[in-house]
Design a binder for these strands. Structure first.
Length: 706
DNA sequence: GTTCTAGAAC
DNA sequence: GTTCTAGAAC
């Protein structure tokens, strides 16, 4: 018996020592992944299998699935495994990480060499198994690095080594070469620096300096990868020379403010021509196309006439008749960026161009817009990259939508300027400036991957290149545009005026309520009640003994800030449903006391009414923000919201700053130094509630509270 | 919104 | 030493 036990202990110890390893190489083409594997395998005493996606299919490129299959087979044979593919993002890595287990450790070796090194190696190599060579290489490498996510231990790695230069690589090669069958390496993350080489500095500098060079589309690199196998590129073609097949960057835009906002056509056409003339020289070969739906459009003919009088290049600035969402499929126009005559809430609806674009782009555009901005001021623009899943991206080739808000002269629309054309023209000029600058930033951004430049000759010093330093100074990337556009204050008083909120989008975690409200049928397990107007659920992290949420189902009402008179019926319905549940709970326990209300600034998207008992007995109530969001003026009682919307058309929204104020008992208002002490006090406090809460049925108690 | 955790507060 | 908060990451 004893020997048996000893044997099994021995076996376990041994098994631990002989753990196999899966090593994921992480790096773009040219980073030296294959060389790394070869170097280790040359001198290692451990059996290794190198799994290279570029050659897995009888010497040709194969699939991730093939790699996985081969990895499993190699592990069964007792070999350790190198996964020799780029593995640049978490998703790409996840399935290989799953190969790990009690018998198998998963490591990462990150080859973070300068992008320029990778590009130059990719370009120079002739016998590379992936056949990624020539001028396309730079585009591919740079595009890949854009989407790169560095590995983290919590993905499931037991060890990560970062290499930033040849010395680091050599060190890593040695580490793995020396690793005998019985050895293991310490786990942890080694060598990581803070710097991140998402882009290739040299190439960026270069493309900022040359005039904007159009490229076919943002899919350039993907397309390049595919074509790299078919074409032998002449890498010596200069950037300025464009083949006839090249697609030129094109912005299609509607006339801003002249439709629904009733802006004077003559004045508007002057401004359009003036701004186009100003921007064309900066836009390289990119084109501006004014679009209108109807052939008899007065704005188109006015602009056409004025542009012709000013001798503006008609090949680069022209008018086009058609549906702005179908100019390619129905009009044969190649274009990649469209402007939207947006509303200040950046939401679908209203009719016209705005409705058409949101409809054609699908929900992707709405979601993408939210990550950039919540609202827009007149005269401002926000650049939104269109996800490749959007129908507009696929069918028309549109990669970006730029929302623009122009001045309004229509008394039936918000912020009417009452014929003040001094202000109006100023704002319209500003709107076109914002729009064209946004477009310029896209063109510059995409020019990182020029179609026919030779990245191998990317100059370290750019003698032959004209320096357009003015542009360098003045224009920022699209993301900066979005922020800048929203941080500036303007005449739109209704707009949320805290820069923080305005530039905030909805993170993925904040969309859960929205998903339930829109598709309650997909969340049957959590839905307590639903109708066509509302859905009732338990708060997932209740902050009191009873804590429900009544969700509005209507799209586009994200929170209290969006509520207007037209939503009164909805608010009343939500309130009534809340009351009904309060009654139900009080029938079960008459001592429960409730409040119904909204958070001034919700963390989660979709208007939701809190129905919460006032005991606050919950382990989920953990911090100051939790407490203050239910007990300070940040919590807006439903009765008050209803009253304010009825009388003023909207509800007061308290600043988030109050969430940081001191901790006070919701009954006796005494202050407490920290959450545990506060909670302990609240458990035993039997004071009367403040007078304010006893008014107007803000507090819903079955019995007289004592 | 929560979770995790470094470091401040005690 | 432990408790608690606050900021980052998700």
């Amino acid at each position: 018996m004893e020997t048996q036990i000893e044997d099994s202990v021995m076996a376990e110890t041994e098994a631990e020592k002989t753990k196999q390893i899966v090593v994921l190489l992480i790096g773009p083409p040219g980073s030296g992944k294959s060389t790394f594997c070869d170097s280790v395998m040359c001198s290692s005493h451990r059996p290794w299998s190198r799994i290279c996606q570029d050659i897995i299919s009888n010497g040709k490129a194969g699939t991730k699935a093939q790699c996985l299959k081969m990895a499993i087979e190699s592990l069964k044979e007792g070999k350790s495994v190198f996964i020799d593919r780029c593995n640049l993002d978490k998703e790409q890595r996840s399935e290989f990480i799953k190969l790990g287990g009690s018998e198998v450790e998963v490591h990462a070796v990150v080859l973070e060499l300068p992008a320029s090194v990778c590009v130059s190696r990719s370009v120079k190599r002739t016998g590379h198994e992936g056949n990624l060579q020539g001028g396309r290489a730079a585009a591919v490498v740079n595009k890949m690095l854009q989407g790169k996510e560095l590995p983290k231990m919590n993905e499931g790695f037991s060890r990560i080594m970062f290499c930033y230069n040849d010395a680091d690589v050599e060190n890593a090669v040695n580490t793995y070469s020396k690793l005998g069958v019985m050895d293991s390496l310490p786990s942890g993350c080694f060598g990581q620096k803070n710097t991140d080489t998402k882009s290739q500095p040299g190439i960026m500098k270069f493309f900022k300096k040359v005039s904007a060079v159009p490229s076919s589309s943002s899919n350039e690199a993907t397309e390049a990868t595919r074509k790299a196998n078919e074409k032998t590129e002449n890498v010596r073609v200069l950037p300025a020379k464009l083949g006839s097949s090249d697609i030129v960057y094109t912005l299609a835009f509607p006339s801003i403010s002249t439709a629904d906002f009733q802006f004077d056509l003559e004045k508007a056409s002057d401004i359009i021509v003036e701004k186009a003339e100003e921007f064309l020289p900066r836009l390289g070969t990119a084109r501006l196309v004014l679009v209108d739906l109807s052939h008899g459009s007065k704005i188109l003919s006015a602009v056409k006439a004025k542009a012709s009088r000013k001798n503006i290049d008609a090949a680069r600035f022209f008018t086009f008749v058609g549906d702005i969402t179908k100019l390619h499929s129905e009009g044969g126009l190649n274009y990649n960026v469209i402007a939207n005559a947006a509303n200040w809430r950046l939401k679908p609806g209203g009719g016209g161009v705005n409705a058409a674009i949101f409809k054609a782009a699908g929900t992707d555009l709405e979601a993408a817009t939210r990550t950039r901005a919540n609202t827009l001021l007149p005269g401002k623009a926000v650049v939104v990259p269109l996800p490749s899943t959007s129908p507009l991206h696929n069918a028309e080739g549109i990669t970006h939508v730029i929302h623009v808000l122009g001045p309004n002269m229509n008394p039936n629309r918000p912020n009417c300027l009452n014929n003040d054309y001094t202000k109006g023209c100023q704002t319209l000029r500003e709107a076109y400036t914002s729009l064209f600058e946004g477009f310029l930033s896209i063109v510059q951004d995409q020019s990182k991957f020029p179609k026919r430049s030779n990245p191998a000759t990317v100059p370290v010093s750019g003698e032959n290149i004209k320096d357009d330093s003015e542009r360098n100074k003045k224009y920022k990337g699209p993301q900066d545009m979005a922020v800048a556009s929203n941080l500036e204050s303007g005449p739109l008083k209704e707009t949320r005026d805290s820069g923080k909120k305005m530039s905030k989008g909805w993170s993925s975690w904040a969309l859960a309520l929205h998903a339930i409200a829109i598709h309650p049928e997909r969340h049957e397990n959590v839905v307590l009640e639903s109708s066509d107007k509302i859905v009732v659920i338990n708060d997932q992290y209740p902050k009191a003994r009873k804590h429900l949420l009544v969700l509005a189902r209507q799209e586009s009402v994200d929170g209290l800030e969006d509520v207007r008179r037209e939503n009164l019926q909805l608010l009343q319905e939500m309130h009534n449903v809340g009351l009904k549940w309060v009654k139900k709970f009080q029938n079960e326990d008459a001592s429960l006391i409730f409040r119904l209300g909204y958070h001034s600034v919700p963390s989660m998207r979709q208007l939701h009414l809190h129905v919460i008992s006032q005991d606050f007995e919950s382990d989920h109530l953990k911090n100051k923000k939790h407490w203050n969001s239910f007990t300070s003026s940040f919590f807006r009682d439903s009765v008050d919201v209803l009253e304010e919307v009825k009388s003023q058309g909207k509800a007061h929204v308290e600043s988030e700053d109050v969430l940081k104020s001191e901790l006070r008992c919701s009954r006796c208002r005494s202050a407490h130094p920290n959450i545990p002490k506060l909670k302990s006090h609240v458990r035993s406090c039997r004071s009367q509630f403040p007078e304010y809460l006893l008014d107007n049925n803000r507090l819903l108690a079955r019995l007289e509270s004592s």
